[in-house]
Amino acid sequence: MNTDQLIALLSDDLAPVRRGVVLRWLLAGLAAGLLLAVLDMMMMLKPRPDLVAAMAGGPFWMKISYTAALTILGLVIVQRQARAGADSRIPLYALGAPVVALIVLAAVQLSAPQADSAALLMGQTWSVCPWLILGLALPVYAGLMLALRRLAPTRLSLAGAAAGLVAGASAATVYGFHCPEVAAPFILVWYTLGIAMAAGLGSLGGPHFLRW
């Protein structure tokens, strides 16, 4: 078929499209995955017993703010990567902001007079924390990747990494309702590690799952 015929064919196939398709698909994928992650957490891990008391305190919300901020920035990157040729440098750089803020907070806590560095860094659950975050991230990653497949990602590793980042950060947010740790150094090391693992594995999955 020559190109003119193709153009005629494509034009005849034209139907009006609704606006905001990118965001709608991504939010649908995120919501479906997040629902599974929440159910997993409620059924398998259970919320921490003292959740109501903890929710009254600042440290709990510090932890949630950190993972929520990474989730939102990740979503901005994902929705840009879902459109061909969009630039995601600004939100990528912006990821530094919550990390730097948490580094400062961790440094303050570690340099307090009677600080127990080992306890602040390792807590009670460091050996399971990143793995559980990674596990909870799986359904969210799947939901986002299914959405991305219908959109137009052109940098597949970056799109996959961004999906992994959103999955990891939102899973960490969910996990935060189970996990009793709230020390900034712990969150900085182990939560960030779980999120980074999700982003790293996500980038490997990009070229594999997103080809179109």
Partner: peptide, 24 residues
């Protein structure tokens, strides 16, 4: 052209069309 057509809903009016086409 086929890719542009099938994914045309991903074009956001706030984005330069040039960049979108070039990306594809």
């Amino acid at each position: 052209l086929i890719a542009m057509h099938s994914r045309r809903a991903t074009y956001e009016p706030s984005q330069p069309l040039t960049a979108w086409v070039y990306g594809i």
